[in-house]
Amino acid sequence: MSIRVQAEVFDPGAETNAMHAANVGVGAVVAFVGYVRDFNDGQEVAGMFLEHYPGMTEKALAKIVVEAQQRWPLLKVEVLHRIGALDPGEPIVFVGVASAHRQAAFDACNFIMDYLKTRAPFWKKEQTGNGPRWVEGKQSDEDAAGRW
């Protein structure tokens, strides 16, 4: 398991390739990459700041990954989440899951993102033409996490 919380931008392609990294037992890699959009909730977004809870963030992400490993046979899991100032078009989050077969990798990646969205202590603040605004939690994210 690899959990990284960092301000620096990352290369999603390199992260995806590293999920295989010459482990010939890996038959399937599923990678999710979340990006900063330039538009949200009817307003243009010029940038974003990601606040988090140092210490709890890493602990919460590790708990989510452990739960995924208990539910599916996974060979490698990597979670990488940005913090601090981000520009539109930049990657925010990477979740990579490697398994012998595709279904476990698809499901575990989906599960980890649903849980991350509702249980990991990150908060987004968007810069808009009307000033900064906190992004509000969505019921649809709660519903998505509830199906597991």
């Binding site: 979340g34 809870y53 993102m113 969205k117 249980r119 990991a120 202590p121 987004k124 906190w134 939690g137």
Partner: peptide
């Protein structure tokens, strides 16, 4: 103890 609004990462 921590209090915070619903999380919005990802």
């Amino acid at each position: 103890v921590a209090f915070f609004p619903p999380v919005t990462g990802g």
